[in-house]
Design a binder for these strands. Structure first.
Lengths: 122, 122
DNA sequence: ATTTGACATGGAGTAGACTCCAGCATCTAC
DNA sequence: GTAGATGCTGGAGTCTACTCCATGTCAAAT
């Protein structure tokens, strides 16, 4: 089964322009049919879902491109990719820590505000 | 005690240009001395630390400006600010959830990769 | 008295990640 | 056989958040 760029846009939620931009940046490079139109596959769907996860965890396109390059090079780059994933895992843990720290701080601030509001009513 | 923009830059870790940019965006507007030079205070330090926390939790400058405006308007805007903080708290929880979900997924992927690597050695 | 250093302003430039557009090809429906 | 939908390319434009630059003021050091 293949998807045209329009359909792939719908199932991924990415705009057609974004898909073409990602292709220009070599993140995802679909095959072309006899009329030079893009044919995205199920595999492309799996791949873009992972790309989106990398984006959600703040990986810049430059870095995703590095990973994509390895991936398109095939199995012999597995070790290198695994290394990238391990590093990225660390980055996610750090992002989580920052959020948690800020959440704690925010909760204290909200509490202070609430007390202040109460004392104002009295 | 006052800080010149140079000193304030050092203690906040923000560049002088960024501080001036934040002022243009009305995030933090320090007093001026008789020579029109900026005089940042301890309060400004506390305030910018909070701004940085908002930035770390992905609040755009546009939104921080809204909060800053309320804050500069004084105590009567407290309720509104509290409401903003509560909403922002929700946003942090959502960001955390996304990270956690992605971490779980990444961990499974790493495991798969590791198994694949092992089976390759055999 | 002049050089140096920190500060000021207004405006231009940059990086990243899209987003939009003009001009052209192809397929389908009427 | 023409209109409309969909696709293609190359390149320009947009938005956010800075970052850099030219020009100018002022005070302290030499």
């Amino acid at each position: 089964m293949f998807f045209s760029i329009g359909n792939f846009s719908k199932i991924t939620g990415l705009s057609i322009d974004t898909l073409r931009y990602y292709e220009k940046e070599k993140l995802i490079v679909p095959e072309r049919d006899s009329h030079n139109q893009r044919r995205y596959t199920e595999k492309d769907k799996t791949w873009i879902d992972f790309i989106l996860r990398l984006k959600e965890t703040a990986m810049p396109i430059r870095e995703i491109r590095k990973y994509a390059k390895l991936r398109y090079e095939g199995d012999q780059t597995m070790k290198e990719r695994l290394e990238m994933l391990r590093l990225h895992r660390q980055s996610i843990l750090e992002q989580k820590k920052i959020l948690e720290d800020n959440l704690k701080h925010l909760d204290r601030k909200i509490e202070t505000y609430e007390k202040e509001m109460l004392s104002r009513i009295k």
